[in-house]
Structures are given as structure tokens and as C-alpha cells.
């Protein structure tokens, strides 16, 4: 069952029909779904209207497994979506992968791209993920930011111009799979990079107070 924009809907529908699924595509989805107990919802899009539509349908059909095809989801978005959905794939995923995700959802198995699963696997762990390599100096920057340092202040301490510092941090955020500072610090915390036992900071960067190094994102 799909509520998607037309092009993707036609493509996904064709794929699933070839797999033998019975597809429903009602005009008035919310009314249709009430009381019918659908097995799997396939949703394309993750913009606010799609989020609202998905939330409404999932409230009406709480037992259904939901497969979301999202546009360029970040690790943070994968995490948020997986709180309520069964599978999340990028919208550009091959149709074979969509079929696998739906088959898994049918059997109450979750599906994520391997890169996303690896990125999320740091949750709850204190050890850095092998997929993310952060230099000790960069870990020090992250700890300083988590402790409330400004980027301009960090630049002064580390001997960079603000432009250079922002660019270095931007690359570091991207390396962590994050779109911005807050998301990067949440991710770094989950990877154990904000821990005082993580690799030491650059000697020129003030080390945050141990008791507060992770306070801003976890406590």
C-alpha cells in the first residue's frame, strides 16, 4: 500500500506487484486504512506533509510495518525514523532493495542501508566506531564545542582564521555523518568521542572540564 508521489509510486507499485504483493492505493487513505489492518505501508518522502500523513496513518493502523523511502536521510534522520518505522531506505535505492525491505517488513524484520546501520550502531557504545576516524586534535575540538566553546574562540586558540575553522569543522561534521554542530556532537557522544578517556585533544585546545564534557548532550 502506497501513498507516494506519482512517478515513484508507479515504479514501486510495479516492483511489488511483480513480487506478488496485493497493492492498495486508495484515494482516501486514512478512511480506507481504518479497520482494515494493512500489513505494510510504503511511504515515499519525508517532508512535513509526508510526515504528517504518515503519522496519521500509523495512528490509524498501529500494527502495520512502515517502510520509508526518504530523500538523502542523514544518520540522525535514520535514527528518528527508525523510532517508529520498520525500514528506511534512501529514495534513490534500487527497486530490488525496496522489495527486500518490504519482504523484511512483512516478516517483522528491519532493514537499513549498511552504512546507516553502522552509523547507528554506535548508540549506547563507549567505543568509537571503526567507520569513523577522528584525529585526537579533532576530538578535542568536539569536546571544546560540547563544553560551550564558540567556533571563533576555537579558531583563536587553534591558530586558524574563522573561515578555516568553520571549514575544518564542517568537514569533521560531514565525516561524522552530521549536517551541523548539534547533530555532530550528539553523534560524537554516542561514539564515545566526548568521553574524557577518548584520544586527547590538541595541546593548543583547552580540555573541557571532565564533569561537563558530555553534559550538554546526554544528561
Amino acid at each position: 500500500m502506497l501513498f507516494t508521489e506519482p512517478t515513484t509510486r508507479a515504479r514501486v507499485r510495479g516492483t511489488l506487484e511483480r513480487q506478488g504483493y496485493r497493492i492498495a492505493q486508495p484515494d482516501r487513505l486514512l478512511e480506507w486504512v481504518t479497520g482494515r489492518r494493512p500489513h505494510v505501508l510504503v511511504v515515499t518522502g519525508d517532508d512535513p506533509p509526508a510526515q504528517r500523513a504518515r503519522a496519521a496513518v500509523m495512528r490509524a493502523a498501529p500494527e502495520a510495518a512502515c517502510v520509508v523511502l526518504a530523500t538523502d536521510p542523514t544518520p540522525g534522520r535514520y535514527r528518528e525514523l527508525m523510532e517508529t518505522c520498520t525500514a528506511v531506505l534512501p529514495e534513490s535505492a534500487p527497486q530490488e532493495d525496496v522489495a527486500v525491505a518490504v519482504a523484511g517488513a512483512w516478516r517483522e524484520l528491519s532493514c537499513l542501508p549498511r552504512s546507516a546501520a553502522r552509523a547507528l550502531s554506535g548508540d549506547g557504545s563507549t567505543a568509537p566506531s571503526p567507520a569513523v576516524t577522528v584525529a585526537p586534535r579533532e576530538a578535542g575540538w568536539l569536546r571544546a564545542l560540547a563544553d560551550g566553546a564558540t567556533v571563533a574562540g576555537l579558531a583563536r586558540t587553534a591558530g586558524y582564521s574563522p573561515r578555516e575553522m568553520y571549514r575544518l569543522l564542517s568537514a569533521l561534521y560531514a565525516q561524522l555523518g552530521a549536517a551541523g554542530r548539534t547533530e555532530a556532537l550528539l553523534r560524537a557522544d554516542r561514539l564515545g568521542l566526548l568521553s574524557v578517556t577518548a584520544p586527547g585533544p590538541d595541546a593548543s585546545v583547552p580540555r573541557p572540564h571532565p564533569a561537563s564534557s558530555s553534559r550538554s548532550v546526554t544528561s
Binding site: G148, T150, V151, A152, P162, R163, Y166, R167, L169, S170, G180, R181
Partner: peptide
Amino acid sequence: GEAARYYDGHVPGALPVDWLDDLHAPV
């Protein structure tokens, strides 16, 4: 949200303001 994008290119003559760092109290 922070000024990284500004440094990649901005409206000519514009100056950067970092919402987190410049517009909030430090402590």
C-alpha cells in the same frame, strides 16, 4: 545555524552571524 555555509559563498557584502555563538549568552 552556524557560519560554515557563509564562507563557501554569500551575498556580496554580507557579513556572517553565527546564531549559536553570536546571538546567545556565553554562559
